Amino acid sequence: MLKTITSFFASLGAPRARAAGNFQPSQQLVVKAGDVLVQPLPDGQGWSALKVFAVEGATAHCLTYEPVARKPTLDVLAQSAVRMAHSPRAATSLAEGWELAGNQPATEVELQGLKYMDFELYVRLTGQDVDTIMRTAEAHFDRASAHAAEGRSIEAINEFGKAIELYPAYSDALDKRAFSFMELGLYEKALRDLDESLYLNPEGMSAFFCKGECLMKLGHLDEAEAIFIEGQDRFPEHATQFNEFLKRTRAFALTGRPA
């Protein structure tokens, strides 16, 4: 029995030993921007890696890569898929147990992912002026709104998209692009924008209501009904509007035709 148990634990340790055979962990490493760190996975069946974007105080802002089978080099990681665009960690947690693979500044593509995770950090790292970005985004938003008011939904969608590309957390632009998608009957695309808007602003009444309308139009009647019931409690000043669409949803369920 003892021999069996010993063999079992030995087998667990073997993969890790194989993976860690050429692992040279640093000790008391003080990480800095551009540092690329690697270490074997706990099960020994591959390697994990991260890149440090910036160190602010006690926090290291990192990008993490998808695990790879062999110990990665900088060239390999340049072609590897990103797992998380922004993974903030205590800088001290990287001081030991990682091997420094080299230093490589963040690429423009890597920083693009950061823009959607931490816009303020993205602006700082790219050396841009936030006021200039916002003025440009607002100009696109205004042009898009004018197109939408005149019924040019495709032009509006394109301009709202430019505003969102500059400032991904622009919830008003997400809402209005969703409304333009709805005008064209593109309810699934509208839902994606509405979900993103509600993630940024959970109390957005228009986005919440329109999400219910999109679900109804797509035939997801149980989900739509839940939205319209919840909306009457969350937004009592608009209870009549939510109740009207609740009735339409239930009629759709009975007749098989949207009201």
Rank of each mutant, 00 (worst) to 15 (best):
G204N: 08
L100K: 09
M134R: 15
L218A: 04
E108A: 15
A207G: 14
E110G: 02
M205T: 11
E138Y: 13
D131H: 13
E237G: 03
L125H: 10
G127F: 12
L221R: 02
E155R: 08
E237V: 05
T132L: 05
A226H: 08
G219S: 05
I164D: 03
L121V: 14
E120Q: 11
E110R: 01
A144L: 14
K176C: 05
L198A: 06
G102I: 10
F181M: 07
T126S: 11
R152D: 10
T136D: 01
T107H: 07
A146Q: 06
A169P: 00
A239P: 06
R234A: 01
F235W: 07
E159P: 04
G185Q: 01
P168H: 03
F242L: 01
A146G: 11
F209W: 08
A106Y: 09
I164Q: 01
D131T: 08
Y187G: 05
S145L: 12
G185D: 00
F228T: 02
T126V: 15
K176R: 12
E159I: 14
Q104F: 10
I227T: 06
F179P: 02
L218Y: 03
A148C: 05
E196K: 11
A106E: 01
Q232D: 02
G231C: 12
T240V: 15
S153C: 06
Q128D: 00
Y122S: 04
D131G: 13
S180G: 03
E165I: 06
Q112G: 10
A137W: 10
N243L: 13
A149D: 09
F208R: 13
P236K: 00
H147G: 06
Q241W: 11
G204P: 08
A207M: 11
A190Y: 00
A146P: 10
D233C: 00
L184P: 08
G113R: 04
Y116A: 07
E203Q: 12
P105N: 13
F119G: 04
Y187A: 08
A101H: 09
S171I: 08
A149R: 14
T240P: 04
V130K: 15
L246D: 05
L114P: 03
G102C: 11
K162S: 00
D195K: 13
R177G: 04
G185Y: 03
Q104G: 03
A178P: 13
H220M: 09
I157T: 04
S145D: 10
K176M: 01
C214I: 03
A226K: 06
Q104I: 06
R177A: 03
Q241A: 07
L200H: 10
Y170W: 00
A169K: 00
L200P: 01
G113K: 00
K211L: 04
E120F: 14
E230M: 06
F119D: 02
E213A: 15
P236F: 00
A148Q: 04
A163I: 05
L200F: 03
E108H: 10
E108N: 10
L215F: 09
A149F: 15
H147Q: 07
A137H: 09
E165H: 07
K189L: 06
Y187P: 05
I229D: 08
T107M: 08
F242M: 01
Q128T: 09
T126I: 14
E108G: 12
F245A: 03
D131F: 15
E108C: 14
C210Y: 13
E155S: 12
M182F: 15
R177H: 08
L111M: 01
F181D: 03
I229V: 04
D195I: 02
L186A: 14
R192T: 03
E108R: 09
F242K: 06
P236M: 04
